[in-house]
Write a protein that binds this DNA or RNA. Structure first.
Length: 793
RNA sequence: GCGGCGGUGGCGCAACUGGUCGACGCGAUGGCCUCAAAAGCCAUUGUCCCUCUGGGACGUGUGGGUUCGAGUCCCACCCGCCGCACCA
């Protein structure tokens, strides 16, 4: 027996897989599209660094599922690519010096090597990188389709500005008022910006019409629903005579309209400019300088009276108009009717500024002080009051969402150029399809300066208008990298297509993605954007489904020092050293053995020795079995039964419960049982079963051991082991006997005895008799095949 | 504040539908093998107690409850983590 040498056997099998193209998945020919196919995908890595143990967990999970499905006869597509555009890569380049492209491409070379050394089953023919012209020309092409439909547009709006990264940041990636990338508090700035009209799909995004057999974690759907934040109410017009205008207000409580005693505008409200008093100007200026974070953390209410009055449409009351920053411009209409008696925030404000409070809902939930609606239940009054206003043209039922349009223009270099031109004569002009791609130009200094770096590439910037032939300037913003990741999974299906982003037949065949693995941090970002993209692409006729991801699974974080591993935090541990020291198989097993895959786990290599010990033990025992155990029919001895029970556990744990660690325990138990007597009848069958069941976790050593056991075929092509139901049934079982709920004895008894017989045997036990103490048995409970509980009193 | 997840040996965790708590592994202790080491093997390993070839009590964050039986269900609370948060 050779010593277990992971380096040699891992290199050997990786070469075999590459030479035999084991993990390359051909597309089906038209008309020949086998039904049992599976699209396994894990979120693609940012090549801003190389892999850390969090990636190892993620992709090993995908790998186990890929092997498992293949061995059940499924055709599995399992591609890989790079989220290579965007801030992470660009910031890495700034940090380390050099060009983002060089950094990214160098990292990609290294990551590809790491992935191959871990033995992951990836179809490398389908590799896609966001920064490849052949990819981003189609990102531009898709943008133009959105643009044509009015789903990509430019407007001035308050947006989050990160002063460190010198760019706009989407709402989805502002965490606690700070930039998700660099942690700098963001500012609200009124800027001309590019947006995707995701709000047009708000209600549809609330519905999860998952494909048959699909399932999402409930909490992810809840997070998305809360993010979209649909609320039903009414929009009501308040007249401001002095400004000769109507101000629209959104409220979920039209039933409290008679209780409105003042009126508040957000400081950013467009009307505020027209009110211009020195106090108002000063207040607005002071607010504008506050960071979003500071504003949210403020305890006391602040505000300023404008000297103007708005008329309550329901009773003609003159309400003083205030400007206060507790009213947010980006929700509702940026203006509210304030009802201090029934809204906590309005109440605080009224108390601070000594404004009147009028109660309009009594304790019993009916209206008071509300002409004509008194004693009406509040729920009923909501409708009745809106109906009355509707009749007068002063209000209507309305729905408001928390969700904002997705701002995707970035004032940065390293991204996909937006294919738009500005012409003095024609205005905003989309680049015609035949002029794509708009290639990202080289610039002298790509670092952020507040002004898009592309604006300094003068030769590239100035061009001719395709409509009038006159001079035109290119859009210098680039796209958010989340635009790239909103459709990359579709490009994998048809990565070399130079006529279209993808072939609809192929996309409709492989997609939706059967099983997607990635972090829950993308719940309101990538996972929402991709759903939006797919809905639009469906309406464009480019594909035939409306949800991108049928199944979804969130892995836990791999932490170090209690925080999530990430390059920006500097607490990164990569696979290279451990793979070098222990081999890929042991590392793959260990990272999955550490705990439930959906829970966070603290990385430590303290226990990895134990896993290497197990692999070596498996190696030795399989060799002993190969030498000692007789070939032939396995029979039905205890080892064979144990093997069948293990098949049952491993298969069920993985398939139904998405548990990757308990199957390893189950196989360890089986191996321990074989070790007791490697020459026993059934030991060969048990060893074959152990090796076969472990193949998805540790494909190299198991492939080798399969040969050691005398097989000339390929383990990864073997059907998944099947249980024989007859061998799962045992002839005897251990009967647990309890007296008053406490275990007092265990008896080995034949299966299939009548309840009365079980009670009889239980009662006869000496140990039980000692505890019965001569007392009368009042009740006996029998759990068939398990236990008897004798109740005495 | 609202919503969610979690709390089991020295450690990671297992116990899936209320039915044997601690599987599997780490660590630790003792022993075997060896000139020695590496590797490996064997035994012990929740706490406490006793008349110790055995046996008993206690034990899953805390306090109650339901049940023949509760880590699992119900009520109240404590602690930790995550998401949302002046959303009208």
């Amino acid at each position: 027996m050779d010593r277990y040498d992971p380096k040699t056997i891992e290199a050997k099998w990786q070469q075999v897989w590459e030479a035999e193209r084991t993990f390359y998945t051909p597309d089906p020919a038209p008309g020949e599209e086998p039904p049992n196919h599976w699209y396994q995908l894990e979120m693609l890595p940012y090549p801003s660094g190389t892999l850390h143990m969090g990636h190892v967990l993620n992709y090993t999970m995908g790998d186990v599922l890929t092997h498992f499905r293949r061995r059940h006869g499924w055709i599995v597509l399992r591609p890989m690519g790079w989220d290579s555009f965007g801030l992470p890569a660009e910031n890495a380049a700034i940090r380390e010096g050099g060009h983002p492209r060089e950094i990214v491409e160098q990292n990609i070379v290294e990551i590809r090597e790491q992935m191959k050394r871990l033995g992951w089953a990836i179809d490398w023919d389908r590799e896609v990188g966001a920064h490849d012209v052949e990819f981003y020309r189609w990102t531009q092409w898709l943008f133009l389709r959105f643009y044509e439909r009015g789903l990509a547009y430019r407007k001035a709006a308050p947006v989050n500005w990160c002063p460190h990264d010198q760019t706009v940041v989407a709402n989805e990636y502002v965490i606690d008022g700070r930039c998700e990338r660099c942690g700098t508090p963001v500012e609200l700035r009124n800027l001309e910006q590019w947006f995707f009209k995701i709000t047009a799909y708000a209600d549809e995004l609330l519905r999860f019409d998952l494909p048959e057999g699909g399932s999402w974690p409930e909490r992810t759907m809840t997070i998305q629903r809360n993010w979209i934040g649909r609320s039903e109410g009414a929009e009501i017009l308040f007249r401001v005579d002095e400004l000769d205008t109507d101000i629209s207000v959104f409220t979920t409580r039209p039933d409290t309209l008679y209780g409105a005693t003042f009126f508040v505008l957000a400081p950013e409200h467009p009307l505020v400019e027209r009110i211009a008093t020195p106090e108002v100007d000063e207040y607005v200026r002071a607010t504008a300088q506050k960071k979003t974070e500071e504003r949210a953390a403020e305890q006391a209410k602040t505000g300023v009276f404008t000297g103007r009055y708005a008329t309550n449409p329901v009773n003609g009351a003159k309400l003083p108009v205030w400007v206060a920053d507790y009213v947010l411009m980006d929700y509702g209409t940026g203006a509210i009717m304030a009802v201090p008696a029934h809204d906590e925030r309005d109440g605080e404000f009224a108390e601070t500024f000594d404004l009147p409070v009028v109660e309009v809902i009594a304790e019993d939930g009916t209206l008071v002080n509300s002409d004509g609606f008194d004693r009406m239940p509040a729920e009923e009054a909501k409708q009745a009051i809106v109906e009355k206003l509707h009749g007068e043209g002063r209000g209507a039922p309305a729905v408001s969402h928390r969700l904002r349009d997705w701002s995707f223009g970035r004032q940065r270099y390293w991204g996909c150029p937006i294919p738009i031109l500005y012409c003095d004569a024609c205005g905003e002009v989309p680049v015609p399809d035949e002029q794509l791609p708009v290639v990202l130009p080289e610039v002298e200094d790509y670092r952020p300066k507040g002004k898009p770096p592309l604006a300094t590439a003068t030769e590239w910037l100035h061009t001719t208008c395709p409509r009038c032939g006159g001079p035109a300037t290119r859009e210098a913003d680039t796209m958010d990298t989340f635009v790239d990741s909103s459709w990359y999974f579709l490009r994998y299906v048809d990565p070399h297509n130079d006529q279209a982003p993808f072939d609809r037949r192929l996309v409709d065949y492989w997609c939706p993605i059967t099983h997607y693995i990635g972090g829950i941090d993308h719940a309101t970002g990538h996972l929402l954007y991709s759903r939006f993209f797919v809905k639009v692409l469906n309406e464009l006729g480019l594909l035939g489904f409306r949800e991108p991801f049928a199944g979804l699974f969130h892995q836990g974080w791999v932490t170090m020092g209690g925080t999530k591993m990430s390059k920006s935090k500097g607490n990164v541990s990569g696979p290279d050293a451990v793979v070098e020291a222990y081999g890929a198989d042991a590392v793959r097993l260990y990272i999955l053995f550490m705990g439930p895959a959906d829970q966070d786990m603290e990385w430590t290599d303290a226990g990895i020795d134990g896993m290497v010990r197990f692999v070596r033990r498996l190696w030795r025992i399989v060799h002993e079995v190969a030498a000692a155990a007789p070939p032939g029919e396995p029979g039905d001895g205890p080892l064979v039964r144990k093997a069948h029970a293990t098949i049952e556990r491993v298969t069920d744990d993985l398939d139904r419960r998405m548990q990757f660690h308990t199957p390893i325990s189950a196989v360890m138990e089986l191996v321990n049982a074989i070790a007791d007597d490697p020459a026993a009848p059934g030991a060969r069958f048990a060893a074959e079963t152990a090796v076969s069941l472990l193949q998805p976790w540790s494909p190299h050593v198991t492939s080798e051991l399969w040969e050691v056991l005398g097989h000339e075929d390929r383990l990864w092509q073997q059907p998944w082991p099947q249980t024989d139901p007859a061998l799962l049934v045992h002839e005897t079982f251990e009967l647990v006997v309890q007296v008053n709920g406490r275990v007092r004895d265990r008896l080995e008894v034949p299966a299939g005895l009548a309840d009365a017989e079980l009670v009889e045997r239980a009662t006869r036990s000496e140990k039980v008799q000692a505890h019965l103490d001569g007392k009368e048995i009042r009740q006996s409970i029998v759990v068939p095949g398990k236990l008897v509980n004798l109740v005495v009193g």
